[in-house]
Design a protein around this nucleic acid. Structure first.
Lengths: 378, 378
DNA sequence: CCCCCGAATGTATTCGATTACATTTTCAGG
DNA sequence: CCTGAAAATGTAATCGAATACATTCGGGGG
């Protein structure tokens, strides 16, 4: 990999980035009021509230949980005290007693991936509607971290978990943990999942390139450890076969979903000197990298080479040219996943299910009919 | 706003995106084993472990918490039982008793913003080193959500909180909640914060444009509700003043940090017909939007107009041309924030502090000397 | 052989809320 | 003015682990 532009730095300060100044903290407030009395954090309990409101703890609890069964007068008095003292019930005690937290954990490999953000938004919508809260965890595809978050459920700190990668945290013996797999799935496993028909989606994308007249279609695959990537590759093969195009192994490269991987793949294809007029990529980042590499080699997109991505991340609308890609129903994936998880939480007996949603091809500027020029090496 | 490319959809399936199929769930496993016995989730407790290992609950607890004070023989026996039965201690009970969770909440307005992801990574590094776990919350700049997450601390579900926006969740009366503000800060408030010297950083960016010969420098500001945006604007003004350039009000526009806002701002400048040869933007997204708009109007970056962003998000390396921008020490911001929070947790008496880190200007391809052409309208 | 000390383990309280069950209050109907 | 059911409130057990305090055990010193 090489940079295309020289990067040089101009320090704003003499001190390095590590140096810090913290004088503001030392300044004394102008009046005497500035934390003159760093009074210990007064933690209130039901007992105190009960004593002050002149009722029993049970009544306080009821006034907060099911106000309708407490007399108006008492209720108002208790609420006044609660408000005045700023009382918040201890959720640990409550959850311990009730054996539920109304909290679910959503795990993503990479939070900055805009694809997942949309899915998470879907999860949160349903969670909100059903009175759950969502806590996010980033695993960075690290097994240890995945496991650590899964333990939170085993330790009763959360009720369930939605994962967005293809590895299932090993289930603590004894209990089936309430888990739903979103976007990805694990073949043959007894895990509930929501995902799209990746074979069909990839096939449709490549079909579209075929209808534009392309015959030499390159493919940039994702890691084969992920079942959905295998499916996308399968879809690519099926489309070629249907169109009567002979599969050319040298026109397939494997990447790791990064922009750089897309660039490298194109470099590889070009160096091999085999002609191609279109590239289908297993995700948008790699497609963006592919476009960059093509353009920097003086090839025009889509006049010389058409490019298709997968996912429809927000940014693919803003590349130049904008990217044709397979749009996953991100929001729906999230919503379905959360809905399934709630079913599971309400009734642990329900068998695991797999739900398959459909995807759409979004045609933008990066694809066009096979041009007069025969492609890069044609 | 208008699209530059026609977008049309090709449905992959007849059924709409909402339709789902879930046949796989119904299929019976080939053998009898497939969840033949959906046995109730056996939740183990110390008591059970103690009974099976033939010791008291205290000994089990000790074997898990401080193994060294338990005899080798007993310890091994207990660990064997724990492992065999897949016992995980109930964290709620533990946290209730010990009054600490070793969990902190990190709140961001938008998880897909790559700027925050880097900061979060810094937070997590320090958290990991000190035995804390980080849970992420996305607030979407929604006050209700900010408040809801803050309540988690009041309810003792988390020990502390790091926010990355300029609003302070109203503190539950009675207790100062352990909170650190990262990247942003609140003027004159008694809140610990870590941020960069935005005035100096912005000034340096504009200074740089001046050294390249630019005199008509436009500015795309961020929302003035955010102190750091005000600071960046102040830095812009200071740099102009130093260079003896008269401030031209029509060359300043306010945006909301989105790509579209950057586009709109450029349209505005161009429509006003006032010449400019450089644009400084309060963040990278708006700078990317600005470049798009300029290029789509047939202007060259940087030959006709230089563009500078702020933040140095990952993607700004990959635009064409790549973006010159102010790089915030994202990782250090996160690390410092978490470090400060831990100090606060260990000793609630420590007064709030503000730490100011330095930023670097990263020069890439979007800036160049003021060219022969006089800019868009010159 | 006894005493004492430290190591190992056990007993029982505690954390703070929820809630089953018990008790008191209220008031309509007789 | 009494009765009884419903409403309101109170008492105490409970969730599961941690831990202060109590007890037991083993063995070295006197």
């Amino acid at each position: 990999m090489q940079r295309f532009h020289v990067i040089h730095y101009i320090a704003l300060h003499k001190k390095g980035p590590g140096r810090v100044s913290s004088d503001e903290g030392k300044r004394k407030g102008k009046g005497a009021s500035a934390h003159a009395a760093p009074q210990p954090v007064r933690v209130r309990t039901v007992k105190e509230i009960a004593a002050i409101a002149n009722v029993s703890v049970a009544t306080v609890s009821r006034a907060l949980q099911r106000p309708e069964i407490v007399s108006e007068e008492t209720r108002l008095r208790i609420h006044e005290v609660v408000k005045r003292l700023g009382y918040t019930p201890n959720a640990l005690a409550r959850n311990l007693r009730t054996a539920r937290t109304r909290l679910i954990v959503a795990l993503v490999p990479d939070i900055s991936n805009p694809f997942f953000s949309e899915v998470i938004r879907g999860i949160e919508q349903v969670a909100y509607e059903t009175g759950y809260s969502v806590l996010l965890g980033e695993t960075q595809s690290n097994l240890v971290r995945e496991q650590a978050y899964a333990e939170m459920v085993a330790a009763r700190q959360a009720d369930g978990i939605i994962t967005m990668f293809h590895r299932i945290p090993s289930i603590p013996v004894g209990g089936r943990l309430p888990l739903v797999n979103a976007c990805e799935y694990v073949r043959d496993s007894e895990i509930s999942s929501v995902y799209i028909d990746n074979v069909a989606a990839a096939r449709a994308a490549v079909d579209y390139l075929v209808t534009l007249g392309h015959r030499e279609i390159a493919f940039i695959a994702g890691p084969s450890s992920s079942p959905i990537c295998v499916d996308r590759e399968e879809g690519y093969h099926q489309a070629l076969e249907r169109a009567g195009i002979v599969f050319n192994e040298t026109l397939t490269a494997v990447g790791d979903f990064s922009i750089e991987a897309g660039e490298r793949a194109i470099e590889l294809f070009l160096s091999q000197g085999h002609a191609f007029s279109a590239v289908f990529c297993s995700n948008d980042e790699m497609a963006i990298g592919a476009m960059r590499a093509l353009i920097s080699r003086g090839l025009r997109v889509p006049e010389d080479v058409s490019v298709v991505g997968f996912d429809d991340i927000r940014f693919s609308r803003y590349t130049s040219p904008s990217l044709t890609t397979v749009a996953q129903p991100k929001n729906a994936l999230g919503r379905e996943a959360m809905t399934m998880l709630i079913e599971l939480l309400n009734d642990p007996e329900v068998p695991p299910r797999k739900r398959v949603l459909s995807a759409d091809l979004v045609v933008r500027g990066s694809t066009g009919p096979r041009g007069g020029t025969q492609g890069p090496a044609g």
